[in-house]
């Protein structure tokens, strides 16, 4: 055999082996890819755990699931009610008054409906549960890391749980305190989900999905001696509590107020910071935010305070 032929054979064998190893997951998927499966999708079955959901957020979830469909039913405990977009909140209150611990929404044929995400709300935080279905072309994912954050603010909250099923369906579960969310949206930051996955052992892919855009109706002002006030937030039940040891908060009539006796809330937050982070508590509810997130919240509040011209 000629030297060139031998060397070229060796090169071809290695190159083909590398190409096959790298592209095998994609090629095998391409063979099975069907029309319409190129698009990514954010959807989850409309099954609700009622323990972590108030009547308003249940109504909102049912409304999202039902959309403009007719003949849908919501099944909870041993009961079942017809539901549409106009009576969803009324049904939600009935469900909450019952002793049911879970509920699901089905269509005319009894199939469980799907919605983009399920939101669980209580007085201090919002939990979002969703499945991210990536295109069929992407499979064999591992080592997934999901965070939710706000563009330009540096505020990021890791998912409380994230798993991969069927190779390309990522299940995400995020809890984000209102103090963080309202401050970032008042600063004009878009809320996003960031998914980082390892693929075929040589690629790392990040997916950024904008969930909620900044609300122009959110406004920030300073009040009294040391109070930060965010107006224009959704109206709900009145809630009050503490953020760390030095800042107290109230949420009432669409106004979220953070007050401190130890200087501006942005600085007072840091004074109460522990290595584990800081707790946000109201009555029997509490949620921890990490030290990094607390520092991010402090920075956002400081920026808002400077922009509003207060506490100088």
């Amino acid at each position: 055999m000629k030297a060139e032929t031998a060397a070229r054979t060796l090169y071809s064998v290695v190159a083909i082996a590398v190409a096959v190893l790298m592209l095998a997951p994609v090629l095998s998927t391409l063979l099975n890819v069907s029309e319409g499966s190129w698009n990514a999708e954010l959807s989850i079955e409309s099954r609700y755990d009622l323990a972590g959901m108030d009547a308003d957020s249940l109504g909102e979830n049912i409304t999202e699931a039902v959309g403009d469909k007719i003949g849908c039913r919501v099944i909870y405990g041993e009961y079942s009610d017809r539901v549409n977009s106009s009576n969803a909140y009324e049904i939600a209150r009935n469900i909450k008054d019952s002793s049911a611990i879970s509920a699901k929404v089905v269509d005319l044929d009894g199939n469980i409906l799907k919605q983009q995400s399920i939101k669980y709300r209580n007085g201090i935080c919002e939990r979002t549960v969703t499945d991210i279905h990536l295109p069929d072309l992407i499979s064999g994912l591992s080592s997934v890391k999901i965070t939710m954050g706000f563009e330009g603010s540096g505020l990021e909250v890791p998912a409380t749980s994230s798993t991969v099923s069927d190779g390309n369906v990522i299940h995400g579960d995020f809890t984000i305190p209102y103090a963080v969310k309202y401050a970032a949206l008042a600063l004009g930051c878009d809320q996003y989900i960031h998914v980082s996955v390892n693929y075929a052992s040589s690629f790392k892919m990040n997916f950024n999905n904008v969930l909620d855009t900044a609300h122009p109706d959110y406004s920030f002002s300073v009040s009294g001696k040391y109070s930060d006030v965010i107006s224009g937030i959704p109206k709900g039940d009145s809630v009050s509590g503490k953020i760390g040891d030095n800042v107290s908060f109230t949420s009432e009539n669409g106004v979220y107020t953070m007050t401190s006796a130890a200087g501006a809330p942005s600085g007072a937050l840091l004074k109460g910071l522990t290595p584990d982070g800081i707790s946000i508590a109201s009555g029997g509810l509490s949620v921890w935010i990490s030290e990094e997130t607390a520092r991010g919240l402090s920075d956002v509040l400081k920026e808002l305070e400077i922009r509003s011209g207060g506490f100088l």
């Binding site: 090169y11 290695v14 190159a15 590398v18 790298m22 698009n39 990514a40 999708e41 954010l42 983009q116 991210i132 295109p135 052992s201 040589s202 690629f203 790392k204 892919m205 990040n206 997916f207 950024n208 999905n209 904008v210 969930l211």
Partner: peptide, 25 residues
């Protein structure tokens, strides 16, 4: 990028191992 409902997903790729493999090839 992909559209997901009303949202838009962008995909970043960071290639690591392939850089070394390509040198060897």
């Amino acid at each position: 990028g992909f559209d997901i409902g009303d949202a838009h997903v962008t995909m970043d790729i960071f290639i690591t191992g392939l850089l070394g493999i390509m040198i060897l090839v």
